[in-house]
Design a protein around this nucleic acid. Sequence first.
DNA 1: CGAAATGTTTGCTAAAGATCAAATTGAATG
DNA 2: CATTCAATTTGATCTTTAGCAAACATTTCG
Lengths: 230, 230
Amino acid sequence: MLKVDPTLIKDLKAFSGLEMAELELMLGEAQSSYFAKGDAFFREGERATRFFVLLDGYLQVVRTTENGEQVIMRHFAPGEVFGIAPALQRETYPANAIAVADCVALHWPNKCWEDFASRVPRFLKNAHGAVGERLNASQDRIIEMATEQVERRVARAVVRLVNQAGKKTEHGIRIDIPVSRQDIAEMTGTTLHTVSRIFSAWASLGLVEVGRQKIEVLSAHKLVTIAEGH
Amino acid sequence: MLKVDPTLIKDLKAFSGLEMAELELMLGEAQSSYFAKGDAFFREGERATRFFVLLDGYLQVVRTTENGEQVIMRHFAPGEVFGIAPALQRETYPANAIAVADCVALHWPNKCWEDFASRVPRFLKNAHGAVGERLNASQDRIIEMATEQVERRVARAVVRLVNQAGKKTEHGIRIDIPVSRQDIAEMTGTTLHTVSRIFSAWASLGLVEVGRQKIEVLSAHKLVTIAEGH
DNA sequence: CGAAATGTTTGCTAAAGATCAAATTGAATG
DNA sequence: CATTCAATTTGATCTTTAGCAAACATTTCG
């Protein structure tokens, strides 16, 4: 349980447009917790009891098929709400939320949701807006899976990772979380073998520099070209 | 503009749990319109001005890629809300909504949304629940596209169509809307050729009877077996 | 440090589907 | 009824990508 200063978080997306008084009201009801890399915020099918805002770190939302295959649905960066079952009239969490870096998150018991509906309506609006974006993103991904082939899907996944977790380096941009070939495969619906081959090809074109759980993009522009196909 | 009797629609999913007075309040603000097969309720990118509840008929939500390929995102049957941009803080509609059979729909200007938020809260809850289901369905479809091969995806699409628009016949269940091979291809991310081959194979196993824009399932059980793979 | 464990690369082969081309069927229309 | 048009089927071929196997590299840990 950490103490959180409202001025530090007022610019987070989830709290955008909130009055300082509203933010303090919310913080008064919040718990904050630390989740180590690898920890689960919640698991698929588990009864949903609380909702979260990520303050620091990075997390993955993953679903597992009956055959034990994993599909990485998306990543969340600081400032995002997640686990907002009450916004969707859900009883259970629909997926696993796993910290892929050490994380700090605020969370509230679900009963606060109704309470905030009247007292911090802007927070609910932000959350519903986030839901809309996610629905859009899901549909974009369906279209991508339906119409584009693997290399482009992989390029897009890398571009997304760069946007969410890219850190400038001397020669390019490094993705600041450990991402394996298998992870990329699970994000794009292919195999680690195919991802490895694609990365090798890109590396020999001088487009990226790759290593064990490491991706550094040397020519973001060319990568975007592959991703968007112009 | 048709007159709608509240008792006829009180059992629709969108209105579930509403008091008769609430329903009458909503109907007082509603317009009802007829949309002929092929008409668009709204188009992708268009400014969202109103939200809908389908009373009768059947509609498709379709998105088009830059290359002009179409992807059918989903179908809606009577009782469903759609075009609910205000629920998601959206300014524009994200896709095309096209009547695939003659339709009747109620619709309201967006300003009613805020109004109903206080006066018919249950309607908003229902709508948010529907959003949750759609987000789930989208994610299921991503998983399907990522992990399953074409025959199974096609089988699932046909099962969904049967559930939403199946009519019992002498020998089986016929899908009561015209669905071409191309349509199925756009629902599953494949080509009409592959769909045609799959249908031919199923037909020769006595599993379905197919024709021009016609699908009749003779053995729903076997089809589900293919769809779920047991 | 040496041994395991884990992640990655790469060659080879095979299968799933896409693409191209052409024939066929069925419906619709004048 | 003949003609046209759209939907469908089917064959042949070509690509893409999965699957398997083995080697290789890097990290971790006893």
